[in-house]
Design a protein around this nucleic acid. Structure first.
Length: 269
DNA sequence: AAGAGGCTCAACCGCGAAGAA
DNA sequence: GTTCTTCGCGGTTGAGCCTCT
């Protein structure tokens, strides 16, 4: 993937991630979260741009990623969601826990789009019907999602409802989220993880301190920030608490990174 | 066995949105 | 109101793998 871009302009590495880089990024985010994607790679000791780190985390390293084949139920959801929302992959991904927008997008282009072309009559007519229903319901219900006023984005008409109520749809595929095909334990052991964690954000990893970040106020009450982290893990020299300002904790995966799930997250590594 | 073509999916790019200065 | 910064989204690319001939 030899492309030129801003990462390259700034002399940052690009292309395939190495296991070592993965470990550094995972270790850093597990310990400190992603307070600022742009600055994160510097603190994590990575010669990558923040954008690249974000993408790697969101699409590959995140602990709740579900990999492997898409089930027929998932295919059905994607088809229906795509029919009503179009190429809004992130929106579609919210209905498929563990699946990333990128993965869904790839799956659509490589499999589902072809299937749709093979069965154009049923699919397209259903799509239109569904889309029209959606629009009419948006209007009739006064659209309780006032922010989403554009056509095709009425969330109150959730295609998932239809899927959920379908007797043929098994919930099993969603109950299987605890079995990602990536075995993190084999990649990141207790020993090498702690090594990686010790190496991230060490003073030698960045030449000058980022003073401005130290003056930012700490945002309290964020469910992502675990008490243990605040009390014992966070090292003010290595990571200023003032940096803890997660506007979107783990990219919309707030539900996963609460206190209840923190232990599950810990067990993964 | 080997070359060609197709397929998959990780990763990059550009753009727009949102918020801060 | 304007400019700058950061983030996230969707489109696209291309290396590597797979299948076919």
């Amino acid at each position: 993937m030899a492309k030129t871009g801003y990462c390259e302009k700034t002399g940052l590495k690009k292309g395939t991630w190495t296991p070592e880089e993965d470990m550094k990024l995972t270790a850093y985010i597990k310990r400190y979260g992603h307070w600022n994607w742009r600055e994160l790679p510097r603190f994590a000791g990575l010669a990558r741009c923040g954008k690249s780190c974000r993408l790697r985390w969101v699409n590959y390293l995140r602990p709740d990623i579900k990999r492997g084949h898409f089930s027929p139920e998932e295919d059905e959801i994607i088809m229906k969601m795509h029919a009503s929302l179009g190429n809004r992959w992130t929106r579609i991904a919210t209905k498929l826990p563990g699946r990333t927008d990128n993965e869904i997008k790839n799956h659509w282009h490589t499999n589902l789009k072809k299937r749709l072309n093979r069965e154009p009559t049923t699919a397209s007519s259903n799509d239109k019907m569904h889309h029209n229903e959606e629009l009419s319901e948006c209007k009739s219900e006064g659209n309780n999602n006032t922010k989403e006023s554009e056509p095709g984005t009425c969330l109150s008409d959730d295609p998932m409802d239809e899927i959920r109520s379908s007797p043929s749809t098994s919930q099993q595929s969603f109950g299987d989220l605890s079995s990602p095909s990536i075995d993190y334990s084999s990649v990141i052991t207790d020993t090498n993880w702690s090594k990686a964690a010790d190496n991230v954000a060490s003073p030698e990893n960045f030449a000058e301190p980022v003073c401005s970040f130290w003056t930012e106020p700490l945002l309290a009450g964020n469910s992502y920030i675990h008490e243990d982290f605040l009390e014992t893990t966070a090292d003010p020299l290595m990571f200023p608490l003032s940096l803890i300002s997660f506007g979107d904790p783990f990219c919309g995966y707030e539900g996963f990174y609460n206190d209840d799930n923190f232990d599950v997250f810990n067990q993964l590594f």
